[in-house]
Design a protein around this nucleic acid. Structure first.
Lengths: 129, 129
DNA sequence: TATAGGGGTTCCAGTTACTGGAGGGTCAAG
DNA sequence: CTTGACCCTCCAGTAACTGGAACCCCTATA
């Protein structure tokens, strides 16, 4: 299968698939013309990667997950630990963003949003607190 | 004032302050020895930038905010619009992260986390759905 | 057979907002 | 006069792609 078919089937951009080969997440074969030839296994790996990425796992975490997936002797505890670590990062980010949202929405609510120059948003940013 | 004093007072790393000069967010003077000389206005600007960044505004948004701040004829509506745009991005990110967290936490809950290889997390990632 | 299109390939640069490090000048104190 | 803490510039690297240039390959049609 050629790269654009794979892109369509996995939902990953062509560029991303090449990139994943570049960083050795996959190693598709090559045809006589130099074109990448994707096997079902490659397809499967890419789909796996796509789902892992969509859960927010970083590339290195994806590599680890793929390694664990291919390791029949893995302990599910290792997978769980990886996922929990990632979950903690997500929770952290959500907390940070939630804090930003709260502050920002208060400021926005306090701003008249008219053609006058006085603005509590700027006032807050400029405050010496 | 020298750069490390400014760093201490604003809470910004020295490197970041130099970077902000590099991208023309500030333009401190220079002493005869080539050292940056920060005025109160520079300090104030940096503090402003620090607070805007901590609310998650991107650098270009910070530049706009600074421009609005220095423009006595601004309309608060412009500031508010900028802030609302940013708030929408934050809400979007929170929604994405929340979705990830939900999926991930379900998977984690379903995983035994022992030394057996069977793992619903990997099973989900490998699913052909 | 010439050519046009729609593939495919590599490689390089740019994105965001810094951060680390090398290599080297400057200043104040003892 | 040396030592240590500053300061400077410039280069490279981070995460995960993305866009683009320059070029090759395959197939179909005029």
């Amino acid at each position: 299968m050629n790269i654009s078919d794979v892109a369509e089937r996995t939902g990953l951009p062509v560029k991303t698939i090449r990139y994943y080969e570049d960083i050795d997440l996959i190693s598709p074969g090559r045809g006589a013309n130099g074109y990448r030839q994707f096997s079902q296994a490659d397809l499967h790996k890419l789909a796996f990667l796509g789902r892992a990425r969509s859960l927010g796992f970083g590339i290195e975490a994806c590599r680890s997950l793929l390694r664990l997936y291919n390791d029949q002797t893995r302990a599910s505890a290792d997978v769980k630990a990886l996922a929990q670590e990632h979950l903690a990062e997500i929770d952290q980010k959500i907390a940070e963003l939630g804090q930003m949202r709260d502050t920002l929405s208060h400021l926005i609510a306090a701003c008249a949003g008219n053609d006058r120059p006085d603005c509590p948003i700027l006032a807050d940013l400029a405050s010496d607190s």
